[in-house]
């Protein structure tokens, strides 16, 4: 795998002195779907804007397809498609002309067949002669995507593509993203929705306060998610874990009222049955029990919380 987008030591301090990005380094591999997760104001959009040339970096370097985004901006930018978070679209022009403009802006020769294909793929063909202002919110978002796809980008940035979008359109977008990936397009999307990252991303990056806290394969993240906890509430509090149970990875709950047992659901044996038998043998009586699973959301919340001052 080679990095198609490489961000090195990127810092962005806005004029007012606000540090939006602090020494961020990130390699995005060719053909992957990377989801950037982070709360509002974490720096997701600034990161994308810096890569796309909308924001000038304070320091650091960015290359796209090996081209520096400043000294070789034409080569770098012609690889990139950007779908912005806000719906910004020329209101009085028609769908098809807006889309054609984008293709031209990116220096590509007129290709009506490609435009038609793009508009059809986004179910916009029937609306091609409508003015943008007449479209619904979801349709406008499709137009933004059509604009980005009109110039056949190799790297596609989707800044919160499914914010405020109905379930059907969200599914459509996910399918579209997968199709594009199959065509070899690298996709970077930002999202608030953990399930979106879980659903389509190959890798997940968590960003907060201008720093990347983690970038990991979704599968290895998922294996962390595979960990479950069994909490056993005891009728009689204990002061210590009995000797006979020392072979289990147990921790004592608050005030000795419960035992907490961590186990791996993907393992062949969870050891729960044996533990419960041994508990009974040790003369302990349970009042209740519950299990919990850490989700990507928990990991995310923990990461972001740890990061708080």
């Amino acid at each position: 795998m080679t990095a198609i987008v490489s961000v090195k030591n990127l810092t962005k301090i806005y004029e007012g002195g606000f540090t939006a990005l602090n020494d961020v380094s990130l390699d995005i591999e060719q053909g992957e779907i990377l989801a950037l997760l982070g709360p509002n104001g974490a720096g997701k959009t600034t990161l994308i804007s810096a890569i796309c040339g909308l924001v000038s970096p304070t320091s650091g370097t960015i290359t796209v397809g090996g081209h520096d985004i400043i000294s070789e901006f034409r080569a770098a930018r012609s690889l990139i498609g950007l779908v912005p978070q806000e719906i910004t679209i020329e209101p009085f022009e028609t769908v098809i002309n807006t889309t054609k403009l984008s293709r031209g802006l990116f220096g590509m020769k007129r290709d009506d067949a490609h435009i038609e294909e793009t508009l059809r793929a986004l179910s916009l063909w029937d609306k091609r002669k409508s003015r943008n202002v007449e479209l619904s919110g979801g349709m406008k978002r499709r137009v933004l995507i059509a604009k980005a796809l009109s110039h056949e980008p190799r790297v596609l940035f989707l800044d919160e593509p499914t914010a405020g979008v109905d379930v059907e359109l969200r599914r459509d977008m996910w399918n579209l993203v997968r199709r594009l990936r199959d065509d070899g397009v690298t996709i970077i999307l930002t999202t608030h929705y953990i399930e979106e990252a879980e659903e389509i991303a190959d890798r997940v990056g968590v960003i907060n306060k201008g720093e990347i806290l983690l970038v990991e394969d979704k599968t290895s993240l998922m294996s962390k998610l595979g960990k479950k906890q069994l909490t056993i509430d005891l009728q009689q509090p204990v002061e210590a874990i009995p000797q006979s149970l020392s072979s289990y990875p147990l921790t004592l709950g608050p005030e000795g009222k419960s035992l907490i047992y961590g186990y791996d659901t993907s393992a062949e044996r969870t050891g729960i049955t044996k533990l419960l038998n041994d508990l009974a043998a040790a003369g302990m009586t349970m009042s209740d029990m519950s299990t919990s699973q850490s989700s990507l959301e928990d990991i995310f919340v923990d990461l972001v919380k740890e990061d708080a001052p």
Binding site: C52, A75, I80
Partner: peptide, 17 residues
């Protein structure tokens, strides 16, 4: 107008000087 409605993002991100 593009500045006002925000479509200037596309001009700024396009491979144009």
């Amino acid at each position: 107008f593009p500045k006002f409605i925000g479509t200037i993002y596309e001009l700024l991100s396009a491979p144009i000087s």
